[in-house]
């Protein structure tokens, strides 16, 4: 891949991802070479079980890479401590939060932990960042609610606010719209799009929303069996990359409409 990209914030070299259990190594995808620029909204697409979550978990150091390297601004992820990484990368995960009485404000404020002192005292700057995150995600009216009182859509915005308050250049979200209806899915997508253009953050999400991703993402990473494509939606359509994303007996990709169409059953 010729490197025309500027301001590369995240890069992988010959990265292989998968699971390692004692002697048994199961590689999900191998030899991934990605270059991701600052200020881009990137959607990772692919069918269930193809390795979207595995890739995101590996990039965020939740699990180990099988081989190859991951670089944040030229620094190898292996050499980045958890403490340091927490100021570079924030996460929105699919796992449920344990039950607690945390308020929305407290939850968002926890995003400031990498910067607070030993007793979690919020400085003026911390409070500014929290207020900014709450304002950007439009959750001001929820501030004093307990997080268990929220709907799935509201909770997702709160979790995004928490990641935003962490004030990192990259935010990784694992299927942020998994439990949401179309209306709330579009709201989340447009919120992320807005955050990228207004804050110049790099946002990487995994999703099953092919149509929305084609319309709203700056770049799409398509994961398939044993290979992958990274490019703008236009580039990928041009090279017919979407063609065999799903097995062809049910849907086909219509290049003119830029979406998948269900075959006559």
């Amino acid at each position: 891949m010729e490197s025309l990209k500027k301001n590369i914030i995240l890069k992988t070299e010959q990265l292989s991802i998968g699971y390692q259990q004692k002697k048994d190594t199961q590689i999900v995808i191998s030899d991934i070479n990605l270059e991701i620029e600052k200020g881009k909204f990137i959607a990772v697409l692919g069918k269930n079980g193809i390795g979207k979550s595995t890739l995101l978990r590996t990039l965020s150091k939740v699990q180990k890479a099988i081989s190859g390297g991951i670089f944040y601004q030229q620094k190898n992820l292996k050499e980045i401590t958890e403490k340091e990484l927490s100021t570079k990368l924030s996460l929105v995960l699919t796992e449920r939060l344990p039950e607690s009485q945390l308020t929305v404000y407290e939850l968002v404020a926890l995003g400031r932990q990498p910067y607070t002192n030993w007793i979690d005292k919020l400085s003026k700057k911390d409070i500014e960042k929290i207020d900014f995150a709450i304002h950007q995600t439009e959750i001001n009216h929820l501030k004093n609610k307990r997080f268990y009182e929220l709907s799935d859509g509201q909770l997702q915005r709160v979790l995004i606010a928490r990641a935003l308050a962490q004030d990192t250049e990259i935010i990784i979200l694992d299927e942020p719209t998994a439990h949401l209806d179309l209306h709330h899915t579009i709201k989340i997508f447009s919120l992320l799009k807005k955050l990228v253009s207004e804050t110049q953050k790099t946002i990487i999400i995994s999703s099953h929303q092919v149509n929305l991703s084609i319309q709203l993402a700056d770049e799409i990473l398509l994961l398939k069996e044993n290979n992958y494509h990274l490019g703008t939606p236009k580039e990928l359509t041009k090279t017919n990359a979407f063609e065999n994303l799903f097995s062809k007996d049910l849907v086909y990709f219509n290049n003119d409409l830029q979406q998948f169409i269900i075959k006559d059953i």
Binding site: V62, L85, S86, L89, L91, E95, L102, L110, Q113
Partner: peptide, 14 residues
């Protein structure tokens, strides 16, 4: 306090 979000979030908070 970070454990209130679960271990993975706690880790991502440094």
């Amino acid at each position: 306090n970070s454990f209130l979000l679960g271990e993975n979030y706690a880790k991502s908070l440094g």
